[in-house]
């Protein structure tokens, strides 16, 4: 079966229903759809198992922070790839900033382990069921999640920068 955005979307909606697969569009040829955190693992598992789709490659995961979207500030983007059909798709899940809890993907993709740790480190996503959810890039003592938009690029508390000349 030739995979196109339409028939994949149709298949997914048939499986999960309109209320769980929404906001589908393709900004750059890669289908982007949104689902809920209750369904995300089931969806990815379905994509993995389905004989026609065989979406069995996790390309990347990225968190995004939209401080202006009330109630759905944090977005987790999963980009998947079907190597068999050379078909990519992107799945987004939005969660509120005060409750950034998502189920872990480590049971399906081993690669998700560090990606989730990175997302935790950068954005503070909590992945339930993750075997070892600790910071990965930053020091453990860090008190905030630096990629959130409200934090500046530079560490405001630090005293080690003495170049008074610079900075816009």
């Amino acid at each position: 079966m030739e995979l196109t955005n339409e028939n994949v979307l149709g298949k997914l909606i048939a499986q999960f229903g309109e209320e769980n697969i929404f906001d589908a569009y393709d900004p750059d040829g890669i289908m982007t759809l949104t689902t809920t955190r209750e369904n995300i693992i089931a969806l990815i598992q379905y994509l993995y198992d389905d004989k026609d789709l065989q979406v069995q490659f996790l390309t990347t995961m990225a968190g995004i922070h939209f401080p202006d979207h009330k109630g759905r500030e944090l977005c987790m983007m999963y980009q998947l790839h079907s190597l068999r059909h050379n078909y990519r798709l992107r799945i987004k899940v939005f969660v509120p900033a005060e409750d950034p809890v998502l189920p872990t993907l480590t049971n399906i993709y081993a690669a998700a382990n560090w990606m989730e740790r990175e997302a935790y480190d950068f954005y503070g996503f909590i992945f339930t069921g993750h075997p070892n959810l600790i910071r990965i890039l930053n020091i453990e003592e860090m008190e905030y999640h630096p990629m959130l938009k409200q934090y500046p690029l530079e560490d405001q508390t630090r005293e080690d920068k003495i170049d008074t000349y610079f900075g816009r």
Binding site: N138, P146, E154, D155, R158
Partner: peptide
């Protein structure tokens, strides 16, 4: 001096 990486995680010069 930290160079281009004027960020929260980089030491701004090892003479610190």
């Amino acid at each position: 001096s930290g160079g281009i990486f004027d960020s929260y995680s980089v030491l701004q010069g090892i003479d610190r």
